[in-house]
């Protein structure tokens, strides 16, 4: 827990490093450092075969990509609500790209319809997977409506990583929040902690699952699938450490907003054209 939180838009390279050193300091302060030395000695003694057996045997279809340094990037995402037409292409692309199980959504689109009631009616038929019907039964006198795509906000101060008991949920040096499926035991504490409801327990793996901004794509220089599929330019993905990135330029020049700013989670997913109903 960090008592003093600085407002950093573009954390410098050292952001991740600082984290490590702080934790190292804590460990030293707790007097575990001696044990740590011992354990490393011991773990060297343990036969490599057993270790291999214990370690995950993950299928590696591709050789490790060399030359991608996570410390050289820091990603941000913009959703321009003035442009979204609710076609659901992003949801379909995400499903296809990431094998998201039926009924669960890593990204989804909501439709807000403001009628005569105090608050807007929100609907999201199947996460907007098949688009939206022009009219919804029971919604009368709608004066204003708009679509809001949502997904994991990849917060700077993450309530979900904070609560994870196993270090299974973590923040990468390039600013993404990922889940280590091998370490996650599916306690779903992070699902409760997320203020944006962007996490779910995958019914197939029984571990926490969420948007990764298509890390397998972004680390190869591709855009996330949802950005790739968006026909109107609603979704934009960019690197804040790239001086000439249009997304960085937009964040610095436009009046962008974030969801639930009062929680100070400092999302890296920015919205343009937020309305008071959206939360």
């Amino acid at each position: 827990m960090e008592p003093i939180k600085e407002k950093i838009v573009i954390p410098d390279r050292g952001a991740g490093m600082k984290d490590i050193s702080r934790r190292g300091f804590l460990r030293a302060a707790m007097g575990v450092s001696i044990l740590g030395v011992l354990s490393s000695v011991l773990s060297a003694v343990v036969p490599g075969k057993i270790k291999q057996a214990l370690a995950s045997t993950k299928l590696q279809p591709e050789p490790v990509r060399t030359g991608y340094n996570p410390y050289e990037h820091y990603y941000s995402y913009i959703i321009n609500l003035h442009k979204c037409i609710g076609c659901g292409s992003c949801v379909r692309a995400c499903k296809m790209e990431n094998d998201v199980p039926t009924g669960f959504y890593r990204t989804w689109v909501e439709r807000y319809q403001k009628g005569e009631e105090e608050h807007a009616r929100i609907d999201s038929p199947e996460g907007g997977l098949y688009g939206f019907p022009a009219t919804t039964a029971g919604v009368e006198g709608v004066s204003k409506a708009y679509f809001v795509p949502k997904m994991c906000n990849h917060c700077e101060q993450t309530p979900c990583v904070q609560v994870c008991p196993f270090g299974a949920s973590y923040k990468t040096p390039d600013g993404l929040i990922l889940v280590d499926g091998d370490r996650c035991m599916g306690c779903s504490y992070c699902v409760q902690a997320c203020p944006y409801a962007s996490r779910f327990i995958n019914p197939l793996t029984h571990t926490a699952d969420k948007c990764t901004w298509c890390y397998h794509r972004t680390s190869k220089g591709l855009k996330p699938a949802c950005v790739q599929a968006c026909p109107t330019g609603t979704r934009m993905f960019g690197d804040m450490k790239d001086r000439y990135d249009p997304v960085r330029h937009l964040i610095e020049e436009e009046r962008t907003g974030v969801l639930q700013p009062q929680l100070l989670t400092k999302p890296k997913c920015y919205y343009i054209g937020l309305d008071k109903e959206i939360r």
Partner: peptide, 9 residues
Amino acid sequence: KKGDKWVSD
């Protein structure tokens, strides 16, 4: 500041 964490902060 633009790009900062919006007006509720």
